[in-house]
Nucleic acid binder design. Sequence first.
DNA 1: CCTCGTTCAATGCAGTTGCATGAAGTTTCA
DNA 2: TGAAACTTCATGCAACTGCATTGAACGAGG
Lengths: 146, 146
Amino acid sequence: MAKPAAMTLLAWTRLLRAADLASQHCAATLREAGLPPPEWYDVLLALERGGPQRPRDLQVTLSAEQYTLSRLLDRIAKAGLITRTPCPDDARGHTLDLNSEGKAMRAAMWPVYAEAIEAALGARVDDEGCAALASLLAPLAEPVSG
Amino acid sequence: MAKPAAMTLLAWTRLLRAADLASQHCAATLREAGLPPPEWYDVLLALERGGPQRPRDLQVTLSAEQYTLSRLLDRIAKAGLITRTPCPDDARGHTLDLNSEGKAMRAAMWPVYAEAIEAALGARVDDEGCAALASLLAPLAEPVSG
DNA sequence: CCTCGTTCAATGCAGTTGCATGAAGTTTCA
DNA sequence: TGAAACTTCATGCAACTGCATTGAACGAGG
C-alpha cells in the first residue's frame, strides 16, 4: 500500500525512458542496415550458444511468452535461418537448429548490434557506471510476483 | 566502431529486462484492476498538469510518435475522458482538455499505478539506490543521435 | 489398457504498432 | 498576392501483439 518515494518515481521514469530509447535505437540501426530486428538476434544467439533445442527451452532462456516465441520462430524459419526437425523423444515438439544461413545472419548482425549498443549505452556510461547499473538492476531481473 | 565492453553488455541486458518486467507488471496490474493501460495515465496526467493543450505539445511532453499519440488520443476520447475543441488560432489543430470523467479516471488509476511501481521498483531498490539509478540513467534520457 | 490431468505448441481474433502517405492549414518570401 | 515549403494531424495497410483457446501428445494412476 505504500506509495513510491519521489526518488523512486524519478528512477522509474528514467528507467523506462532509457530502455525505450535504447531499444528503439538498436531496432532502428538494425533496420537501417537491412537486418532483422533485435529479437531475432537473441534467438539466433541462444541457438548458437545452446545448440539444437526445443521451443520450450528457448522460452525459458529468452523468457518470452509462449505465443510470442512461437510466432517469432515461424518468421525466422520462414526466412530460412533455422530448421525444425521432429523431436524423436516427444512428438509434440520439434528440435530447432541454426543452419548456415542462420549462423551467417547472426554473425552479420553482431557488429551492427554491438555498434548500436555502444552508441546507446557504452559511449554514455563508463565501465564503472555500467557495473553500478548492472548491480542496481540485478534485483529487477526476476518477475515481480516471484 | 568500438565493441561494447563486457560490463556494458551486462548492463544492457539488465536494463532491457528490468524495464520490460517492470512495465509488464504495471500494465498487468492496471489491467487486472479493470483500468486503462499506463500510457493513458501519462496523457491524463500531462493534461491535468499542463492544462488544455494541443496534440503537438503533448507529443513533446510525452515524447511519443505523432501517429502513436494521434491514435492514443482517439481511444481516450472515445472512452469519454477528454474533449477536443477546435483551436481558434490554428484550424489544423484542436485543443485537448480533461473532462470530469478524465480527472476521475486519473485519480482512480494513480493508487493502482503507484502500488505497481512500488512493488516493481520501490520495494526492491532503496532510496539511495534509486537516486544512484536515476543519476546513472540521466545521460540516457535523450535520443541517441541527439 | 483406458482415462484424466498436464505439457507443448499453434492459432483465431481483436487490438495495437510502425511506416508511409495524405489532406488541410499556415508561413515565408519574392 | 500567390506559389512553394513547412506544420499539424489523421489514416491505409501490413505486421506484430496479447489473450484465450485448441489440438495433439505425454504421463500417472487405476
